[in-house]
Simulated scan of single mutants.
Amino acid sequence: MIALTIGIVFGLSWLPNPHLSKYGFLPARLAYWTDADANMNVRTAVPMVFLGLFSGIWLISRKYGGYWWAGIWLALVLIILIAEVGQLALPRRHFDWGDVMWGALGALGGITAIRMAGFLVKK
């Protein structure tokens, strides 16, 4: 599931046109939301939340400790950076620190949600 979500992140990041409504694979309302100028950076957080959730579940299932959680979050940020650098090769795309920030926050939110759920289940 993690590999599939990483593939989705790269696939969406490296589409030639940043306006997802042009491709027809999203429902109209969702495509409208993703294409709104106000949401162009925020939408990067959405798949990263899921990557954070899936990664957190994996960490809990392996019983990995705190350093692993920080390391996985850094790895997810690296994925965002790779996706953004890849956009430099596309004429209608560009590197955007706002995407990196929102993606990092999304990943942190997903990991944190699973980490907190893990603490609640233990008690």
Rank of each mutant, 00 (worst) to 15 (best):
L120H: 03
Q87D: 05
F25L: 04
I82F: 11
V77Q: 07
W97M: 15
K123F: 03
A75H: 08
A83W: 03
A70W: 12
L74T: 05
L74M: 12
L81I: 14
A89F: 10
F50S: 04
T5H: 00
A117I: 09
W14D: 00
L4A: 14
L105E: 09
T112S: 15
T5D: 03
A83H: 03
G109E: 01
R62P: 11
E84M: 06
E84K: 04
W69S: 10
M40F: 14
D96M: 14
W68D: 09
G110A: 03
L105K: 09
A28N: 10
I57S: 04
V121I: 10
L81V: 15
T112M: 14
I60Y: 10
A28G: 09
F50P: 00
W33R: 09
M101F: 15
P91H: 11
M101E: 10
I82P: 00
R43P: 05
F50K: 00
L108A: 15
P47L: 02
I72K: 04
S61D: 14
R29C: 04
Y67M: 07
T112P: 11
L15N: 00
K22Q: 07
L51D: 01
A107Q: 06
A28Q: 12
I2G: 10
I60F: 10
Y32A: 12
L15S: 00
G66F: 13
F54E: 09
L51V: 02
G106S: 08
L59D: 04
G110C: 06
L4V: 15
G65C: 04
P91K: 11
I114N: 02
W102Q: 12
L30G: 03
P16T: 01
F50V: 10
G24H: 02
G11F: 08
I111Q: 09
F25E: 00
Q87V: 08
S61A: 14
L4H: 08
L105M: 14
M48L: 11
T5V: 12
L53Y: 03
T5N: 05
F10Q: 01
D37N: 15
L76D: 01
P27A: 12
L120T: 04
Y32C: 05
F54D: 01
L108N: 10
A28V: 13
P27W: 14
I57V: 11
A117V: 06
A75I: 11
L4P: 07
P27G: 11
A113V: 10
F54G: 00
G7W: 07
F54C: 00
L4M: 13
I72V: 15
A107G: 13
G110S: 06
V49F: 09
G110M: 06
I82S: 02
T34R: 01
G11V: 01
W69F: 10
D37P: 14
G7R: 08
K123L: 05
S61V: 13
K63P: 06
D99T: 08
I2M: 08
W58L: 12
D35E: 01
R115H: 10
S13Q: 06
L26N: 00
V100S: 08
P16K: 00
A107E: 07
M101Q: 12
D99N: 11
K122R: 14
Y23Q: 06
K122S: 13
G65T: 09
G52T: 05
P47Q: 02
G52A: 03
D96Y: 13
V49M: 06
L76S: 02
G86F: 02
Y23C: 04
W68L: 07
L20V: 07
R115L: 10
N41V: 12
V100K: 08
G11S: 03
G109F: 02
G52C: 05
